[in-house]
């Protein structure tokens, strides 16, 4: 069972490509540490600089489209992203996030504003912004996904459970 995640909401819009805005693909020679200070600047100037450790990234639909690089998740870990909430994600980004221990929650994010305090319960799927009376029901993360996330991602999980015993670890 994963613990609830509580943090300050930092909001981005629809269709944000992590391939363009959160990778070194178009900034050859720049490393993950540098990109973690400028990520998403083109869609929201100063976004990464103002992002605090433990903040929750709240995005519009199709977050992470066109992205197949795990680097995007590594960059977000450096930024201190505690979780991402969006109505939908790019397929490969969604998978990479789970494999690299970053919680991704699918629900409607309309009405949530930058700076709101947001609380996520990954096991029930409930997302709340108390100050705005917002409660949304996201599909709860499957137990297997919670087990991978709790371990910190697929690699640390397999180091402990090379037999893929998801049940043994979820407890």
């Amino acid at each position: 069972m994963m613990k609830a995640i509580k943090g300050c909401a930092r909001v981005l819009g629809d269709d944000v490509s992590t391939d363009i805005h959160c990778s070194s693909k178009y900034l050859p020679g720049r490393d993950t540490a540098y990109i973690a200070t400028v990520a998403f600047d083109q869609v929201s100037p100063g976004f990464a600089k103002a992002f605090g450790k433990g903040d929750v990234l709240v995005a519009g639909k199709n977050f992470g489209i066109n992205s197949s690089r795990e680097q995007a998740v590594h960059i977000m870990h450096r930024m201190g992203v505690a979780a991402i909430v969006a109505p939908s994600f790019g397929r490969q980004f969604f998978r990479n996030a789970i494999n690299n221990g970053l919680a991704v929650i699918e629900c409607d994010t309309g009405g949530i504003a930058d700076g709101d305090m947001i609380e996520i319960d990954p096991s029930s799927g409930r997302v709340t912004v108390a100050a705005r009376n917002i409660t949304r029901a996201a599909p709860p993360l499957p137990a297997a996904v919670q087990a991978l996330l709790s371990a910190g991602g697929l690699i640390p999980f397999l180091q402990k459970h090379p037999d893929w015993n998801l049940k043994g670890s979820a407890a």
């Binding site: 795990e70 490969q92 991602g153």
Partner: peptide, 8 residues
């Protein structure tokens, strides 16, 4: 998939 998956 990505590198993590293939290593698994």
């Amino acid at each position: 998939v990505e590198g993590t998956d293939v290593s698994a």
